[in-house]
Amino acid sequence: MNILVCIKQVPDSNKVEVDPVTGVLKRNGVESKMNPYDLYAIETALRIKEKQGGSITALTMGPNQAAGIIREAFAMGVDYGVLISDRKFGGADVLATSYTISQGIMKSGEYDLILCGKQTTDGDTAQVGPEVAEWMGIPSLSNVSKIVELKEDSIIVEMDMTHEIEIAEIKYPCLLAVDKDIFIPRLPSYVKKQETKDREITVITLADLDDKEEKHYGLNGSPTQVQRIFPPEVNDHREVWNGDGSELTGRLLHKLKELKFA
């Protein structure tokens, strides 16, 4: 069983602010970490490997520093690491990112199962996983909340569909986006970290990919463009309502309807 886990480096804190006048992003420290949702994907991979054997590869796309999260994946028990990194990949939106990743995956090896987290904490789109699967032409499932059974050529999982749980069988090769809390991710081990500190990480650049056409990557390969960023409105709104019971109830009902809760 060959498992690939897609991971991403994100800022350590979401406490970013935008200067309301200049529209400049004020950064607060440069520490970064692995996207917390990806830890669940790694844990899922490790649990499957414990049962089924095989190997786990962690893959990320980003600057050279992103190798740090691959080292972290090693310390959790992942076997191999792949870093897709090229300046020409900069400025990629969901489409270009997923295309680059799918190209990188196909270059790095053959996998039965690709796992990714539900979403990232910086972009929050939850869309890269399914798009990667589409580029690769393999089936995918999102909201995977439980692994039910591992079979020879397929896997049975539970999906959380908000009001119901769907149990489905999906054939390998496939991509699963796992929910938070599918398993509690283990902590990286110091012992494993020492053991793997010299382990090699495969670096893939544009020159290594099958499709070397620059136009398909980075900003150029991105249909969407960010025009501007601005700070959100803060809810510091405060109203005090006085009056008799039924008057208050009336206003409350009205407000609940306005907020779409009633």
Binding site: D12, K33, M34, P36, P188, S189, Y190, V191, K193
Partner: peptide, 9 residues
């Protein structure tokens, strides 16, 4: 083992 906790989560 020694388990490392190095992020907010």
């Amino acid at each position: 083992d020694i388990l490392i906790s190095d992020t907010n989560e």
